[in-house]
Design a protein around this nucleic acid. Structure first.
Lengths: 339, 339
DNA sequence: GTGAAAGCGCTAACAG
DNA sequence: CTGTTAGCGCTTTCAC
């Protein structure tokens, strides 16, 4: 049997001796079509296996029903367990509302903002999801300037200018640092994230505030900056462990760096959880299975993904958002690495 | 300044006193338009910031210039470091050829095949990328039946019916097992993947063949099956470590399970690399930073992503593929966990 | 070399 | 209740 091209409204109309308009309205469930006709149309549509052509409809409606997500980094070794979970969240929520998710990258040669510019100019998407927000985020500036709807995971400098969901990183690191202080640690080092990232500021501030509140002196040498990879956490920890007096606790701005720090501690012949405490942020699934298991701050990343998609879709549909900005309180997950 | 809607061919034509047709052809670089006119059109287009409307063009050309990728699993804790790297690969290659990448999921309530059915029926994509191939893969059956172009990462039962790229998992596990044998191990256990996955068969076969070739007896109790998560690797290793005589080496079908096995070995008070060897498969970045670093089999997942996209696009453009099927030889990465 | 006209498949304003 | 008409923005015959 030959493969024929999929049926269109035309085909149904012809088969039934009706006009395309009537068929369209019958299927859309409009009330101004006779019940009997509606039924006939529906049955014929089912029989012929009719499915609306997504693009024809979109061209007409001047909407794309598509959300854009541009991967915030490129390069061959972009490997973030956190990320796949987030993607599952946004993918599921988008699918549930019958929205498509257009995922793109900015290749090695391309500037990140060009990828946004292109999607907007060629009207490929109705709005964007942003992650890894930066303090003065060029993407935010661009989208605001062009009045393109978007929702971010993470705050920016323009706190009230756009909807976002974030986890209170300052509270998270405050709690983590306090935990260490309660266990008698006084030389608590911090492996931070690149300072242009918004969450880097919050988390660092939480760490500092906890120390200040406890009246514990702060040593600039105890604060290192990594790039969120295991490798950078590993190297930062090596530096910190060579200091004398040696820090007794290493807090990292994310789990991947904390994993690197674990390796460095082991390699230095020290015992994690005994000689040196280590903790992270994110609570990736792996954190429960390191040796020893990693103390960390949980972020409900899957739910956050769902949530920002729901917000963006509400925005696109002109529905009012109950909350423009959502700050979630993090949950401390205490395991053996930082008892 | 008010935001006006983006310029169309109409707008350019009007501004220049030309017809839409001519403008279209000038911009497309057709030769049958006067050089002077072409130049005028080009300049005006640039001046007005004209960008073609992606969907209008696609509707007309009856192509979508979009590739579909449906995440092979759902649920909140889908966290695979391997996956984000793959996505970066397919994203970059697609962007380079000016193709869009439509990423979708099948939500909890939806059957996986329905997601494919929908994308095909509503003509949202031109072709698909598939990963985690199964032996008798329903997706492959569906796409073959409907003559939808696709390329898989991983073989299926229908080896010659579709283009694929795969890493020779049998050779990988053969080499890994041989490495253990050379170091005197005789009780080598295996934590396999779900048997419906195609790669599970190959890897298990490699393990078995290496033992058989060496004349080492095989014990069914030494072969466990996990679901590719750390958690399942952890539990499988616990079972294996309780056996007497105890296996001296644990090989896992992927790195995530190997990481779980590392934790179980530590927890049992044994030393990895000394009392018990552990190895994995994938070579995720983390594998270099476990304690001890993990011996594994490297898969160039980023390049594989790029490659299958390149193949799919060639297919869609009707270009002949130099190779319909590509079997890559894996590279053994020997680290301290399995010396 | 240029333009008029048709149409991709769908929806919406307006008659009747 | 149903059909006619128009058009989303673009490409592609086919005349002139």
């Amino acid at each position: 049997m030959a493969v024929s091209s999929p049926p269109t409204l035309q085909d149904i109309a012809r088969a039934l001796g009706l006009s395309v308009t009537t068929v369209s309205r019958a299927l859309a469930g409009y009330s101004d079509v006779a019940p009997a006709t509606r039924e006939r149309v529906r049955q014929m549509a089912r029989k012929m296996g009719y499915r609306p052509h997504a693009w024809a409809r979109r061209l007409r409606q001047r909407r794309t029903d598509t959300l854009g997500f541009i991967i915030p980094t490129h390069g061959p070794r972009f490997s973030d367990p956190f990320f796949s979970e987030f993607l599952a969240g946004i993918g599921n929520e988008a699918a549930q509302h019958d929205y498509d998710l257009l995922v793109s990258t900015h290749g090695p040669g391309q500037r990140e903002i060009d990828a946004y510019e292109r999607m907007v100019a060629e009207r490929r998407v109705d709005g964007f999801l942003l992650v890894r927000t930066r303090v003065d985020d060029p993407r935010v500036r661009f989208l605001l300037a062009h009045q393109v709807p978007f929702v971010t995971f993470g705050r920016t400098q323009a706190e009230n200018a756009h909807p976002w969901v974030d986890v209170d990183g300052e509270a998270g690191l405050y709690a983590l640092t306090q935990l260490c202080l309660q266990h008698g640690h006084r030389r608590i080092a911090y492996i931070g994230a690149p300072p242009d990232l918004m969450h880097a500021r919050h988390r660092l501030a939480g760490y500092r505030r906890a120390l200040a509140d406890a009246g514990v002196p702060q040593n600039p040498a105890w604060v290192q900056v990594g790039d969120l990879t295991e490798e950078s956490g590993y190297r930062a920890a090596q530096v910190l462990l060579r200091l004398r007096p040696r820090p007794t606790a290493l807090l990292a701005a994310n789990d991947l760096m904390a994993l690197g720090a674990l390796a460095a501690v082991h390699e230095a012949g020290l015992q994690v959880g005994k000689d040196v405490a280590v903790a992270g942020f994110d609570d990736v699934p792996l954190a429960a299975h390191t040796q020893p298991p990693l103390t960390t701050v949980h972020q409900p990343i899957y739910d956050i993904g769902r949530r920002i998609v729901a917000m963006l879709i509400a925005l696109l549909r002109g529905q009012p958002l109950p909350q423009q900005q959502v700050l979630l309180q993090p949950r401390l997950v205490v395991r053996a690495s930082c008892p």
